[in-house]
Amino acid sequence: MAETKKINPFLKQVLELGPPLAFFFIYLHLRDDMFTWGGTEYSGFIVATILFVPLMLAAMGVLWVLTGKLSRIQIFTAFMVVFFGGLTAWFNDESFFKMKTTLVYGFFAVMLGIGLLQGKSYLAYVLDEMLPMRHEGWMILTRRLCFGFAALAVANELVWRTLSTDLWVKIETFGFPLALMGFLMVQFNLLQGYMDDPDGN
């Protein structure tokens, strides 16, 4: 197994958050334009999606080279972006890329739910090394995050089906990630009593 190498935390954040931010700014620049390739017209959103896919893959490639490792979540998310980005370009239909967010959040909710039915926390399997916590705490966090991902999946469906593309792009880029981050921060604070003390005190 390849050894995981440490990199500058700021650089790691740039590589992880850079592609979504690049998509946001490319979309803002191209949203009012139409492009014709091979006799077919493509909107600025479609072109921004097409450009986003190689940008994200390049950033993940650099991250893999620098760290020697990619998480299962990163690999799954990359697959979903490539797959639905490809469908978006092939069918010239932006709804495929918008649905991707629903399916990603929905998949996470289903996987966590399956683990809960088995009395396990798949979340602990992924994050236990970074966040030492007792089994009871992991089960509580997994249960809450399962419902949280399900809520985000439903929210994405409501947003892209009822609101404008402009609003969806803004909520997708900033709203959902900030909501998830805030939710996790609150949960970690609430679950402090379940954290393992490395000193045994």
Rank of each mutant, 00 (worst) to 15 (best):
A2F: 00
K5W: 03
I7G: 01
Q13P: 00
Q13W: 10
V14Q: 01
V14S: 07
E16M: 08
E16C: 03
L17K: 09
P19I: 00
P19C: 02
P20N: 02
P20A: 00
P20D: 01
F23Q: 00
F23E: 00
I26H: 00
Y27V: 04
L30T: 05
R31F: 10
R31M: 09
D33E: 13
M34G: 09
F35I: 07
F35N: 06
T36G: 07
T40S: 11
Y42M: 03
S43T: 15
S43E: 14
G44R: 13
V47P: 00
V53Q: 09
L55E: 02
M56I: 04
M56T: 11
L57N: 13
G61W: 06
W64M: 11
L66C: 04
L66Q: 09
T67W: 05
T67M: 05
G68L: 08
K69Y: 15
L70R: 15
I73S: 12
Q74M: 14
T77S: 14
T77Y: 09
F79N: 03
F79P: 06
M80H: 01
F83W: 12
F83L: 15
G85M: 05
G85D: 00
G85N: 09
L87E: 03
T88Y: 07
E94M: 07
E94W: 04
K100D: 05
T101K: 04
V104R: 01
Y105C: 09
G106A: 09
F107L: 15
F107Y: 14
F107K: 02
A109N: 10
V110L: 15
L112Q: 08
G113S: 08
G113F: 13
I114F: 10
L117R: 04
G119S: 07
K120E: 15
K120A: 13
S121M: 08
Y122S: 06
Y125I: 06
Y125Q: 05
Y125F: 11
L127S: 07
E129R: 13
M130Y: 10
L131C: 02
M133E: 03
M133A: 05
H135E: 11
W138L: 03
W138F: 11
L141D: 02
T142E: 07
L145N: 12
C146M: 15
F147H: 08
F149G: 12
F149E: 03
A151L: 14
A151G: 09
A151C: 10
L158S: 03
V159F: 04
W160A: 01
W160Q: 02
L163D: 13
T165E: 14
V169A: 02
E172A: 13
T173W: 10
G175C: 06
F176A: 04
A179S: 11
L180F: 04
M181Y: 09
G182V: 12
M185E: 08
V186L: 13
V186R: 13
Q187V: 07
F188M: 13
N189Q: 12
L191Q: 10
Q192F: 04
Y194R: 01
M195I: 08
M195G: 05
D197H: 03
D197A: 01
P198K: 01
P198I: 00
P198N: 10
D199T: 12
N201H: 07
